[in-house]
Computed example of a mutant assay.
Amino acid sequence: MDTIGEKIRIQRVVKKYSQEYMAFALEISQAAYSKIERGETKLKLDRIYEIAEVLEISPFKLMPPSKYDGAINFQGIYAQYFKIKRFIITKVLRRKYLVAVDDVDQSDISNN
């Protein structure tokens, strides 16, 4: 997985911008900008937005994915499915079966 710095570098190269241009646009030194791309500088959200603006991209392209982003917790889904299934079998269907048995007239059973 690419780090934020790697993502920035890739986008910069795609746009054919130099590190000097990026540094000038961000009003920082080229050395400081280089540290951003190497991941030696922790970026605050406002700086990520500034870099994205210079690169003319969405800042979300640079940020790491959220732990909830596009991930489906199948184990959780299956666990809930089996809990619901168990509930239906043990509570609902048994109750219906017991009611149905009670509703049947004993004389109907003996006549058949």
Rank of each mutant, 00 (worst) to 15 (best):
T3L: 10
F74A: 06
D46M: 08
V101W: 12
Q75H: 13
I4A: 09
Q106I: 15
R9K: 15
Q11T: 09
D102P: 06
K96W: 07
F24I: 05
F74S: 01
F24W: 00
L55G: 09
K35W: 00
E53K: 15
K91Q: 10
F24R: 11
S66K: 15
R38P: 01
T3P: 09
V104N: 09
M63Q: 09
I28W: 04
Q106C: 11
Y49C: 04
A23K: 00
A52H: 10
A25N: 04
V92I: 15
I51E: 08
P59E: 01
I84W: 00
Y97E: 14
S29A: 01
E40S: 09
L43E: 01
S110E: 08
D103S: 11
T41W: 06
N112T: 08
L62S: 02
I4P: 12
D2E: 15
M1E: 13
R86A: 12
A79S: 14
G39E: 13
D103A: 03
S29V: 11
G5R: 05
V104A: 06
K15N: 12
D105I: 12
K16S: 14
Y17P: 00
V13D: 10
R38T: 13
N112S: 07
T90C: 05
R38K: 15
R47H: 07
S29G: 13
L26K: 02
S18G: 06
Y49N: 03
Q80I: 02
F82I: 11
Y21R: 07
I51F: 02
I51A: 09
I8C: 07
E40Q: 14
Y81R: 04
N73S: 10
E50R: 04
I109M: 01
L62V: 04
T41N: 08
I89Q: 09
I10N: 01
K35T: 00
K91D: 13
Y78W: 14
P59S: 10
Q106R: 14
Y78P: 01
E50M: 02
I57C: 00
E50S: 09
E20F: 08
E53F: 14
M1N: 13
A52T: 12
D46W: 07
R47L: 13
L26A: 03
V101C: 09
F60V: 01
N73A: 12
A100P: 06
A31H: 08
V92T: 02
S18M: 10
R86K: 15
Y78M: 07
P64Y: 07
D69A: 12
A52M: 08
I10W: 03
M22D: 05
L43T: 10
I57R: 03
A32V: 00
T90F: 09
A32S: 14
L98C: 05
Y97W: 11
I51S: 05
I84C: 03
K7H: 01
G70F: 06
I89C: 02
I57V: 15
I51V: 15
D69N: 13
L93C: 00
Y97R: 11
S107R: 14
I10H: 06
E50I: 03
T3R: 10
N112F: 14
S110T: 14
V92D: 03
P59C: 02
E56L: 14
S110V: 13
S58C: 04
K16W: 04
I8D: 07
Y17T: 07
G70W: 03
